[in-house]
Amino acid sequence: MLNIAYVGFGKSTNRYHIPYLMQRQDKFRITRVVTPTLGKRPAEQQALEATGTVFSTDLNDILADDTLDLVVVVTPAPAHYITARQLLLAGKNVIVDKPMVETLTQAQELVDIARERNLFFMPFQNRRFDSDFLTLQHVLNAGYVGRPVELEVHMDHYRPNSATTIGGPIDGAWYGHGVHLVDQIIALFGKPTSATYDLRATRELGAKIDDQFEVNLHYPDAFKATVQATELATAAYPKWVLHGTTGTYIKYNIDQQEYDLKVGIMPGMPGFGDDAPQDYGQLTYFNPSGDRIEKVIPTIHGDYGRIYDAAYDSIANDAPKLISDSQMLAVIEILQAGFNEPAPHIVQF
């Protein structure tokens, strides 16, 4: 049993973290929560306090608690670096929500501190357990499409009136949404050799914060992965489009976990995260005999809580981290490079 603490008690903590931990009470016990404002979520706070969780507003309460095995940072993104650094220097194992930090220098510093003190440190890249991502991974591993040639992944919304106009790079869509998509591509294919960047502010012209991006990640063997997001998509585009030398795979719609969580359907409830059959991916490929085959690929069930399973195995059983240091550093390097110069531009890695 690992004692766990949270820094932050907002929407993300209560939607993407704690509901999954409630399914893993044999492995984790939430002993502390530090939040700027007590009582902001009274029902959720009271439920945890009834199980013995102590709430406070002072990070020093966590820094001084030697009984903690893991601290999860779920603060606004600009506070991730300084908070994670304080925790690591205090000897705490840390998971930090995405985006982990803003710069490669910050990321390398945190990785070095964790290594020097033999601490667990990892970003919360929960979308490695998106159902659509797991299914795409299966299609690739099964070899249906042959050698992959082009992969396109979208994270599109229609949010015309929620533009942020001021802030730093970490506050924009490229860091906020791109961090997930880039991590997924790196998990599948490793670090690219180069990237082309198109980052724009489209809802409020002249805004300093990007809300739309298209970034091409280039690899050996004529392979390219495109990660793209917009806040002005009124019609659905496929989430994934994969072309290879022997086939094509197309998947519409996102993981149902997010839809369910937003309406209060929690992990463990009947049907949670289940994909509707009409949303299954469509595969068209040619087999070795030259037969053209069309088939539906049932969606593999996703589970964001598997991030916590992986963390438990690393801390309790010394298993390798799910997200390696080289992977987390590559993600931040690619994100930061998007702002090396005005878009559009090309960066070699």
Score class of each variant (00 low, 15 high):
residue 261 L to V: 00
residue 239 K to G: 02
residue 218 H to L: 12
residue 150 E to D: 15
residue 344 P to D: 03
residue 220 P to F: 05
residue 77 A to Q: 00
residue 77 A to S: 11
residue 302 G to P: 06
residue 34 V to I: 03
residue 59 L to Y: 02
residue 257 Q to T: 11
residue 77 A to R: 12
residue 307 I to P: 08
residue 150 E to R: 15
residue 145 V to E: 01
residue 183 D to F: 08
residue 16 Y to M: 14
residue 274 D to N: 14
residue 341 E to R: 09
residue 188 L to P: 06
residue 234 T to A: 15
residue 146 G to D: 03
residue 110 L to K: 08
residue 144 Y to C: 00
residue 151 L to V: 08
residue 234 T to W: 15
residue 144 Y to Q: 00
residue 167 G to H: 08
residue 243 H to D: 11
residue 232 L to G: 05
residue 113 I to S: 00
residue 58 D to C: 10
residue 188 L to Q: 09
residue 246 T to M: 01
residue 302 G to N: 09
residue 226 T to C: 09
residue 276 A to R: 14
residue 123 P to C: 12
residue 224 K to C: 13
residue 108 Q to S: 13
residue 136 L to G: 07
residue 16 Y to K: 13
residue 265 I to N: 07
residue 21 L to Y: 07
residue 155 M to V: 05
residue 28 F to P: 04
residue 311 A to L: 02
residue 71 V to I: 09
residue 37 T to N: 12
residue 54 V to W: 11
residue 74 V to K: 12
residue 282 Q to L: 09
residue 240 W to V: 02
residue 213 F to K: 08
residue 168 G to P: 11
residue 70 L to F: 01
residue 90 A to P: 02
residue 70 L to V: 09
residue 2 L to P: 06
residue 72 V to Q: 12
residue 268 G to N: 00
residue 231 E to H: 15
residue 54 V to E: 15
residue 221 D to Y: 06
residue 277 P to S: 01
residue 85 R to H: 07
residue 169 P to H: 03
residue 257 Q to P: 01
residue 115 R to T: 07
residue 245 T to H: 08
residue 62 I to K: 07
residue 279 D to I: 04
residue 223 F to C: 07
residue 284 T to F: 13
residue 58 D to I: 05
residue 34 V to K: 10
residue 211 D to N: 10
residue 152 E to Q: 09
residue 267 P to H: 06
residue 238 P to L: 04
residue 83 T to E: 04
residue 270 P to K: 13
residue 86 Q to G: 08
residue 264 G to M: 00
residue 75 T to Y: 00
residue 143 G to Y: 07
residue 315 I to L: 06
residue 1 M to P: 15
residue 268 G to A: 01
residue 65 D to Y: 04
residue 142 A to R: 15
residue 8 G to R: 10
residue 161 N to P: 02
residue 129 F to P: 11
residue 145 V to H: 07
residue 193 T to G: 14
residue 333 E to S: 13
residue 338 G to Q: 04
residue 255 D to M: 12
residue 293 I to P: 03
residue 169 P to D: 09
residue 293 I to H: 05
residue 51 T to N: 04
residue 91 G to C: 09
residue 234 T to I: 13
residue 207 A to P: 02
residue 248 T to I: 10
residue 143 G to E: 07
residue 224 K to N: 12
residue 293 I to K: 09
residue 245 T to I: 03
residue 156 D to R: 08
residue 129 F to I: 12
residue 37 T to E: 10
residue 310 A to F: 03
residue 45 Q to Y: 10
residue 323 I to P: 05
residue 133 F to E: 08
residue 181 L to T: 03
residue 15 R to F: 11
residue 189 F to P: 04
residue 24 R to M: 12
residue 43 A to T: 14
residue 57 T to M: 08
residue 10 G to F: 02
residue 173 A to H: 01
residue 8 G to L: 06
residue 206 G to M: 00
residue 239 K to Y: 14
residue 220 P to A: 07
residue 252 Y to P: 02
residue 346 I to S: 15
residue 79 A to T: 08
residue 110 L to Y: 03
residue 6 Y to H: 14
residue 325 D to N: 05
residue 2 L to T: 04
residue 144 Y to G: 00
residue 284 T to Y: 14
residue 32 R to T: 06
residue 60 N to W: 09
residue 253 N to H: 13
residue 54 V to F: 11
residue 213 F to L: 04
residue 237 Y to Q: 15
residue 255 D to F: 03
residue 241 V to F: 13
residue 291 D to E: 15
residue 260 D to M: 00
residue 8 G to I: 04
residue 19 P to R: 03
residue 137 Q to I: 00
residue 218 H to Q: 10
residue 61 D to V: 11
